[in-house]
């Protein structure tokens, strides 16, 4: 791994965002709309949920954390799609750039996007709803890191599919993360799911993160068990996603598809 090659690609994306304000929409526009719509719905429902005093905290916290996962996944996919859209992929892979360096750069870009989106949503949630995510405490930090890693794993998997099947598979960049949402227990606990879905949810790192978040809010204790599960599953998922990407990259080279990915 050569740092200068990773930073070259990170710079390329930062310059793109500087030059193209419309690309800031993915960091500002969608999180803002989500926060406005779901935030006011939460406030409204909270009036009738007196038996659940932490309802607003649960819901807005979940909303902000889900956005972190989604932005992390998007950070990977959009960085890759940018190379396809600009017909630049071949220029990159005829250079000494390695696939690991390429993925590392997309991960760094995704962290930058997540930080940007998180600052905005956390700030707005505080301004609009007096909701302070930090009241949940520092124990949230390791869970947030796990959400980012889950987003990376989904993003790398999606990118591998787009690499293999071309732009026709581009829709997955926007949709695949949401496939995990029903079993990630984002807005409700795993216990409300039917038994077979609970089994699936237990295999999803994000479900353990959101269960952990709820445990933190309810008990103020640190749910180490959920964190270990999330981290363990993330290690497996991320490793599998990277292996899958490398496998797809090998197939694409055998089939001579790299030059045609953008067509």
């Amino acid at each position: 791994m050569k740092l200068h090659r990773i930073l070259a690609l990170v710079n390329r994306h930062l310059m793109l965002y500087k030059r193209s304000p419309q690309r800031m929409m993915e960091i500002v526009y969608w999180p803002l709309l989500d926060l406005l719509v779901w935030g006011f719905i939460t406030m409204y429902l909270a009036r009738y949920k007196e038996g659940l005093p932490a309802f607003v905290t649960f819901f807005l916290g979940a909303l902000i954390l889900w956005d972190i996962l989604f932005r992390a996944q998007q950070g990977i996919c959009i960085s890759f799609l940018e190379e396809i859209w600009s017909r630049n992929l071949l220029n990159l892979f005829v250079s000494p750039l390695r696939t690991g360096e390429f993925l590392a750069s997309t991960m760094l870009v995704s962290i930058i996007k997540v930080i940007g989106a998180a600052i905005m949503t956390i700030g707005l949630a505080y301004l609009l709803y007096s909701f302070n995510l930090f009241m949940i405490g520092l124990s949230l930090v390791p869970f947030v890191i796990n959400l980012i890693v889950t987003g990376w794993a989904i993003g790398i998997f999606t990118t591998a599919i787009i690499l293999r099947y071309g732009q026709e598979a581009e829709v997955m960049a926007w949709g695949l993360a949401f496939l995990f949402q029903p079993v990630s227990a984002v807005f409700y606990p795993v216990s409300v799911l039917p038994p077979f879905m609970q089994v699936i949810a237990n295999g999803i790192p994000a479900a353990h993160v959101f269960e952990g978040m709820r445990a933190v809010i309810e008990t103020k204790g640190f749910p180490l068990n959920e964190l270990i599960w999330a981290a363990g599953l993330n290690v497996i998922y991320l490793a599998c996603a990277i292996l899958f990407f490398n496998g797809m990259f090998r197939i694409v080279k055998v089939k001579g598809l790299l030059v045609r990915v953008g067509e």
Partner: peptide, 26 residues
């Protein structure tokens, strides 16, 4: 390598594009 069938990131300036590749090739 250069080919008329490959392009460069459209939103970057000429200098920015060349700088990215200069960094990539160290």
């Amino acid at each position: 390598f250069s080919s008329s069938y490959v392009s460069l990131p459209q939103s970057l300036t000429v200098w920015e594009n060349l700088r990215v590749f200069a960094q990539l090739y160290h």
